[in-house]
């Protein structure tokens, strides 16, 4: 996927001319990024129109709200939220991005039952039902939801029934979050 730098003028942003360089930020065009995620998740048109996308490192594209009235100094630690991991063969939306916009996804979103949800949050693999699998278009990243609320990212190994691992979903729930759930469950009953 191409990452295309753009200027503040390209995005109709009124920024101090030195700001992006001072803060070590690069504005990037939304088109290739969103084409990638929209193709996978079927987000509605216009969902990301009020955001600008910034490359802050070789790993991450961040999404931040317009009009981006950032300080010229001192150095900022972060702005907006992590949107896309780009340091991998197939860039993927981050957990925070999935949690923020995942409810709008129309494809490759898995609505789990309570047992699957618990396994996902414990970073255990889950096996999708045929009905869940029908809503996925193929191997790759999926949004994991429960009761319609997005919780994070999973990786679906295959949707081909001839494959041994068809419907097998690897949990990519952040380990730090999972650690917070030791000895309890999100549903209130003892684990």
């Amino acid at each position: 996927m191409d990452i295309i730098p753009v200027t503040a003028d390209d995005l109709d942003l009124s920024l101090h001319s030195d700001l992006l360089e001072t803060q070590n930020l690069t504005l990037v065009a939304s088109d290739p990024l969103l084409a990638h995620v929209n193709a996978r998740f079927g987000f509605p048109a216009g969902l990301f129109d009020e955001l600008v996308f910034l490359q802050c490192s070789h790993k991450i594209i961040r999404a931040a709200s317009r009009p981006l009235q950032l300080p010229l100094a001192p150095q900022i630690d972060r702005t907006g939220i992590d949107f896309l991991r780009i340091d991998m063969a197939n860039p993927r939306m981050t957990t925070s991005a999935m949690m923020t916009w995942g409810r709008h996804a129309t494809s490759n979103a898995v609505d789990t039952n309570q047992e699957q949800c618990l396994d996902y949050l414990r970073r255990l693999p889950i096996d999708l039902t045929p009905d869940q699998l029908r809503r996925c278009t193929g191997r790759g990243f999926v949004i994991v939801r429960h009761l319609g609320y997005p919780l994070g990212v999973g990786f679906l190994e295959s949707t081909r029934h001839s494959d041994q691992n068809c419907g097998h979903l690897r949990s990519m729930y952040p380990s730090a979050f999972a650690a917070d759930l030791e000895q309890t469950t999100p549903f209130g009953n003892p684990s």
Binding site: P71, D77, T79, G80, I81, W101
Partner: peptide, 11 residues
């Protein structure tokens, strides 16, 4: 990240 807040900058 958890709340989906995009309008905030940290320093």
């Amino acid at each position: 990240d958890r709340l989906g807040i995009t309008n905030t900058t940290m320093m």
